[in-house]
Amino acid sequence: MKQQLVSKSFDLPGNEIGRVSKLYLINRFVPLGNLGGMTRFRELLILTVLHRFGALPFRLLIRYEDPLTRLYKKLKG
């Protein structure tokens, strides 16, 4: 069966972010070696949410990109 080199959510094919999460979990109990500190949980969570559910919010909110950006900048100070 043919495969794409990139998934629809712009991840590596085969749910790479899921694989990272799995090894992140294993790495909590069994040392996997030098992975450069691997990842922080927050980063992993954001990336997972972005890959899994990112497309829809982008499609819905693109119309309001400018006011949302202005609001974000205002909130950020």
Binding site: D11, G36, T39, E43, L50, F58, E65
Partner: peptide, 19 residues
């Protein structure tokens, strides 16, 4: 925009986390 947001997120994380 979504594609670029993904790239940007990875790029930003790469600046702080070698992994």
């Amino acid at each position: 925009k979504f594609r670029k947001a993904v790239v940007k997120r990875y790029y930003n994380y790469s600046q702080g986390q070698p992994f």
